[in-house]
Amino acid sequence: MLLTLVIGALMLGGIYGLVGMGYGLIYKASGLMTLAQGDMLMIGAFLGLTFYKTLGLPFLVSLLLVMVIMFALGMFIERVLVTSLLAKGAQTVYVILCTIAISMLLQNGAMFAWGSNVMQFPSIFGVSSVNILGYEIMPERLLALGVGIVAMLALHFFMQKSKFGTSMRAAAQDELAASALGINVPLTKGAAWGIASMLAGSIGVVVGPIFGVYTAMGSLIGQKAFASAVVGGYGNMYGAIVGGIFFGFVETFVSAYVTSLYKDFISFAILIIVMIFMPTGLFKEQVME
């Protein structure tokens, strides 16, 4: 039972963490906040389902296609919607409202395109469970965990080692100085939104077979990912992962050993306690403006 729970918690934590990383990335790069990350996950899941099941493409190709489309969608939201709002002198809260509107549009758009029923994402692997140390584990869970770890490492090396990643970090630190050095700041901002939605979308594709695909699948995951980002230290990428895994463990173990009915109560109560007593999160990130 323990290993099953640990793997379940790690997978759930990885999902929250990766989606939460997107919040941090966007905040770091543009000082803004989006509330549509959960719905990006949902769109990714529906796109993945369409490519994999309806069009019959190989899973890896479907995943890559989803990543490209989701990157473009995130970029579009920042470059077209957010920028034009900011150009009109809109305050941050209007941008947040705009992302709430986007979240509703995405949910209803998905309902229009794919319907309101829960859709079945066929198993990616031929078997329904693999045996590890005597425990039955769903291979899709391991895949979600694997994709999470790969995405985390890839993002880490991209941000730390690549030239574009370095310019993104530079632009986040000081826009004016970065553009004086010839860094295309609007591009780095757009890319941050793009990467955030790409992360959420790709996670959507891997959780589809586990959770099923439906229009409301992203809303609660999005909220918990947001909570993870806050607990880890809003704006800190690694903090979001730690926060996510923390929530994954709290949720899974609380429902296994304490109460399955009030696990969300406990999770979100912890969020409020963290906000009051550790406003900078586990990673001491300065977010208070």
């Binding site: 039972m1 729970l5 379940g8 586990i210 959770f211 609660l220 899974t252 173990f253 296994a256 696990k263």
Partner: peptide, 9 residues
């Protein structure tokens, strides 16, 4: 969407 805890029990 995730019933891991309940199902483990």
């Amino acid at each position: 969407t995730d019933f891991t805890g309940q199902i483990a029990k």
